[in-house]
Structures are given as structure tokens and as C-alpha cells.
Design a protein around this nucleic acid. Structure first.
Length: 343
DNA sequence: ATTCTGACA
DNA sequence: TGTCAGCA
């Protein structure tokens, strides 16, 4: 059939169909007169393109999706996270406008306040967009579980690993029918411990490969592409949040935003358990790092400087600012848990 | 009458 | 994506 008929059948326009061809998404047959000719297979493909466009995918992304049809789910997952990021950005902008309007007095606007709010907003936007995986988790995914079992030569970051995960499950006390999120789920070692207790788990990770491994190991987990600073979850949607060995991949500055993001998706009376490599406080950090230096343990120093170990005291303070009741627990010098309950 | 390409909004 | 011109 000719282009107009094809367009009519698909509820689109000839211009659009030609445009997709120009972008290399589809190549129809051409007759002697150079007229394009479409068969059922072409129509089916166009239908797919139009559907993906409808959920906001760019023609470039669609091209990739079409090239690996088996991975449509993965591409949709990534697209969802991109939409969540946009949605959050718009929410932030509206919130900022509300605050700007609140600042207006009888005297009119105080420009300095407006400027400050805009600066803040810019800062949050940049943080949300700026996060990058510097550690190649896609590359690590396939043998991540194996690497957990190997002991570091002089610095074992996974000492007390099992114990720490168990502790998180114990304090969260998942109940039947509850919904929880595990952030940076990786291969699912923590998240999967909640489903046997009847909870639904959303597993968030920025690495497609990790999500893929996690889904293979634990099909019952709802894996979602996303990260700490833009969680692919609606406001007040979950009863609890857990995260293990992940928060140290965002900088200290980003951590505060990360906690606010957790607060956003958590229901009232919800709970949060953070298990991670961190120091009790600044003083403790200096002592521990100093000891490693004195011992000439370059491995440890390098590992610590390559990532962003938190000061536990900061996490506690931020949670308390947000009105949470906080408990802490130490497994060793550098492995701690922060447990926070939303009031 | 319909489509095609290319330019421009 | 829509629209328009100039052609075949």
C-alpha cells in the first residue's frame, strides 16, 4: 500500500512516516516511480515505533530498541526512569514557584529571595542530572556475587556482609502485603530477603546488567531503572526502604538530597534502614583513616578515597531534621546501620 | 490526483 | 511535525 493509506491505517501522517525513514527506523520498498510501498510487516513495525514515541522515546532510542527486540523491557525501564527524572524536575520547579510566591509581601518581591530560591533549584537539578556511575557496575554485574566472597588482601570491605543484611531485615520487620524499595539492589541479596515474608519489593538500580542479573535470580522482584537522586517511585508509595552498600556511591552533598528523595516516597510511619560503609563521625573518620595510614595500608586508603563513605552523624542529623526517630548500629569500624522511622 | 525531495516554521 | 513549493 502507498504511504497515505498506511498513514491512515495507523492514524498518523505521511510526513511522520517519511521522517522515521529519514532517521533510519524503517525502510519501505520503492517502486519504479519512487513511490514507497508498505506491507503488513512494515505496518507492524511502524505501529511499534509510534507506540514507543507515544511514551516519549526519542527516535534514536527507538532505533536501538528495534535493533534488539528482546530487550524492549529494558529500554522501557530506562525510559520510565527518564520520565521520572523529568517529572521530579517539574515538581521542583512548581515547588520553587510556590515558595517564591510565598515570599512576596506588601512591599512586593524581595529579589534576593527569588534569586536564592532559583539558585537552590539549579543546584538540585544539577545534582539530579549529574550523577554518573564511575565504577562500571554493568561490567561488575555478572560476577558481583563471586567477588563478594573473595576477601580483600588487607582490606575486606565485605566483612560482616551477611550479618549486616540480616540486621536490616530484622529491624525493618516486613509485614505481609507491605511494599518496600531496595535502592541499589544490585544482584538482589538484600531485597530478596523480604519477599519470603510476604512483602512486595521494588528493586532500584542504575545498572541494566545488575537489574538483569537480579531478575534472573529473583523473578518476583519488580526491578526498576533509577538511582538515589531520582527514585522511579511515586510519592508516599512505600512502607519501607532499605539500601545496602550503595549510599557510598553518592557524594556527601548528594546524600542529603538522597535522604529527602527517600522521604518523598515513604508513607507516614514508614521506616528506612541504611546499611553501608561509613564512619561514625568526622573524628572517627580521621582516627580510622589515620590508623590505616600508620599501618601503611594503601589498599584501604585507596578504596576509601575512591568512594564517598558517609559520616553517620550527618545522616542522623538530616533524618532528625526531617522529623524522623533514628537508631544506629555498628558492625565494625567502617560498617554501620542507620535505622530511621518517619513520624 | 498522488507522491517525492528539500526548505523552513 | 506541519506546511509549502516545484517536479515527475
Amino acid at each position: 500500500m502507498k504511504i497515505k493509506e498506511a498513514a491512515n491505517r495507523l492514524n498518523t501522517t505521511p510526513r511522520t512516516i517519511r521522517f522515521y525513514e529519514e532517521k533510519g527506523l524503517i525502510q519501505p520498498d520503492k517502486g519504479e516511480n519512487d513511490y514507497r510501498s508498505y506491507n503488513e510487516h512494515h505496518l507492524w513495525k511502524l505501529q511499534t515505533i509510534l507506540s514507543l514515541r507515544e511514551v516519549g522515546m526519542s527516535t534514536q532510542q527507538i532505533k536501538h530498541t528495534l535493533q534488539n527486540e528482546e530487550e524492549v523491557e529494558c529500554y522501557l525501564n530506562v525510559q520510565r526512569s527518564a520520565l521520572y527524572e523529568q517529572w521530579l524536575e517539574i515538581k521542583d520547579m512548581i515547588g520553587t514557584i510556590d515558595q517564591m510566591l510565598d515570599k512576596s509581601t506588601d512591599e512586593g518581591f524581595v529579589k534576593e529571595d527569588i534569586f536564592a530560591l532559583a539558585d537552590q533549584l539549579k543546584n538540585v537539578k544539577e545534582k539530579r542530572k549529574g550523577w554518573q556511575d564511575q565504577w562500571d557496575f554493568n561490567g561488575q554485574a555478572r560476577d558481583y556475587d563471586k567477588s563478594l566472597k573473595m576477601n580483600g588482601y588487607r582490606f575486606n570491605v565485605h566483612e560482616h556482609y551477611e550479618e549486616a543484611l540480616e540486621k536490616a531485615v530484622e529491624v525493618v520487620q516486613p509485614k505481609e502485603g507491605e511494599k518496600g524499595v531496595d535502592i541499589g539492589i544490585g544482584t538482589g541479596n538484600l531485597g530478596s530477603q523480604f519477599t519470603p515474608k510476604g512483602a512486595c519489593i521494588i528493586g532500584v538500580d542504575q545498572s541494566d546488567e545488575m537489574l538483569s542479573v537480579c531478575k534472573e535470580k529473583h523473578p518476583q522482584i519488580d526491578v526498576r531503572h533509577g538511582h538515589f537522586l531520582a527514585l522511579p517511585v511515586m510519592d508516599g508509595e512505600v512502607d519501607f526502604i532499605t539500601t545496602s552498600y550503595a549510599l557510598h556511591h553518592v557524594t556527601e552533598e548528594e546524600k542529603e538530597l538522597a535522604l529527602r528523595e527517600m522521604d518523598r516516597i515513604l508513607k507516614p510511619n514508614g521506616r528506612i534502614a541504611i546499611v553501608d560503609l561509613m564512619f561514625a563521625d568526622q573524628h572517627d573518620r580521621e582516627c580510622v583513616v589515620g590508623d590505616f595510614k600508620d599501618a601503611g595500608n594503601q589498599e584501604a586508603i585507596f578504596a576509601i578515597e575512591d568512594e564517598y563513605y558517609a559520616n553517620r552523624s550527618n545522616l542522623v542529623a538530616w533524618f532528625e531534621q526531617l522529623g524522623y526517630k533514628v537508631h544506629t548500629h555498628s558492625f565494625n569500624n567502617i560498617l554501620h546501620m542507620v535505622y530511621a522511622e518517619k513520624q
